[in-house]
C-alpha cells in the first residue's frame, strides 16, 4: 500500500511537472485564496503599528465579521480610543465613541481618510475581501517570494465600483495565501503594497499574522499589522451587527 502510495505520488509529481507548462487558471487560484480566507464568521484581535515621522504607536482592536458584508470593530487600545466602536453594513459605516455617546454616520468622503493615521483607508477595510467578485485573474508568472514558490496573478477590475483598478498578487502555490500584493491605479501606477511577513496555521488554515502595508506615494515606513488571535466559524449573534450594539 505504501508503495502504491509512493507511486501515485510520483505520478502526481510528474503530472504537476507537466502541468507547470500549463499554469492553472487565475480564477481557480483566486477561488482557492478566497476559500482559504473563508466567508464564515470570524472574531479576531489584531494590532496595528503605525510608523510615523514622530515614532511609532499601536492600535489594538477586536473585530467580529460575518461574511463579507457585515463587520463590527471595537478598539481596545490605546486608552483614548478604548471603547470606540465601528459598524459596517455593506457600504455604510457608523462610529460610536463612548466619550461622546454619539453614533455618527461616516459619509463618503470620510471613508477615504486613513484609519487611525495608518496607510490604510476605511475603504481599504470595507472592500469586499472576495476578490473573485471584483477581479478577472490571470496567472502571469511563477516566482519565489520569501522562500515560497508563488503564482503571480494579475487582477483586473471587472468594471464595478472599486478602489483599485488592478492588482498583482503573489499566491503561495501550496497554501493559497496571498504573500504579497501590489495595488495599482487605473494608469498602472503603483499605489499601495502589502507584504506578508509571517504565516501561521490556525484552525487548519494558513493565516497571515504579520503584514506590512505601505502607501507607495507617501514617504515613511508604512503600517504593520499583527493578528493576535483568530477564531473562525465563530458563533456571532446577529444582534452584534446592529446600531444598537454600538452603544452597548
Amino acid at each position: 500500500m505504501k508503495k502504491l502510495c509512493g507511486f501515485t505520488f510520483l505520478i502526481f509529481l510528474c503530472a504537476a511537472g507537466c502541468l507547470a507548462q500549463e499554469w492553472p487558471s487565475g480564477e481557480w487560484i483566486l477561488e482557492r485564496v478566497d476559500e482559504n480566507i473563508g466567508a464564515d464568521n470570524k472574531v479576531s484581535i489584531s494590532e496595528m503599528v503605525i510608523h510615523g515621522r514622530r515614532g511609532s504607536r499601536s492600535v489594538k482592536s477586536k473585530s467580529w465579521l460575518q461574511g463579507t458584508e457585515k463587520s463590527f470593530t471595537e478598539y481596545l487600545a490605546p486608552a483614548r480610543d478604548k471603547g470606540t466602536k465601528m459598524l459596517k453594513l455593506e457600504d455604510q459605516l457608523w462610529i460610536y465613541t463612548p466619550s461622546t455617546d454619539r453614533t455618527i454616520k461616516i459619509s463618503g468622503h470620510m471613508l477615504r481618510q486613513s484609519v487611525m493615521g495608518s496607510d490604510l483607508s476605511y475603504e481599504d477595510f470595507m472592500e469586499d475581501p472576495d476578490l473573485t467578485n471584483l477581479y478577472e485573474a490571470k496567472v502571469i508568472a511563477e516566482e519565489t517570494f520569501k522562500e515560497r514558490s508563488c503564482w503571480v496573478l494579475e487582477l483586473t477590475s471587472k468594471g464595478g465600483d472599486i478602489a483599485y483598478h488592478s492588482r498583482k498578487i503573489w499566491v503561495d502555490k501550496e497554501r493559497f495565501v496571498s504573500m504579497k500584493e501590489e495595488r495599482f491605479a487605473k494608469s498602472g501606477k503603483l499605489l499601495k503594497t502589502f507584504v506578508v511577513e509571517k504565516i501561521e496555521r490556525i484552525q487548519n488554515r494558513w493565516i497571515p499574522t504579520h503584514m506590512i502595508f505601505k502607501d507607495e506615494l507617501k514617504s515613511g515606513k508604512g503600517t504593520e499589522f499583527f493578528l493576535e488571535s483568530l477564531e473562525m466559524n465563530a458563533d456571532i449573534p446577529d444582534a452584534v451587527f446592529t446600531k444598537a450594539s454600538l452603544r452597548k
Binding site: 503605525i50 510615523g52 514622530r54 504607536r57 492600535v59 483614548r80 480610543d81 470606540t84 462610529i95 465613541t97 466619550s99 461622546t100 455617546d101 454619539r102 455618527i104 470620510m110 481618510q113 486613513s114 484609519v115 487611525m116 493615521g117 495608518s118
Partner: peptide, 16 residues
C-alpha cells in the same frame, strides 16, 4: 454637537 477631526497622530477624534 460633535467635532470629528483627526488627532495629531492621525487617529480619528470624536468629541462633544
Amino acid at each position: 454637537s460633535t467635532l470629528i477631526g483627526s488627532t495629531m497622530y492621525g487617529n480619528m477624534a470624536v468629541v462633544n
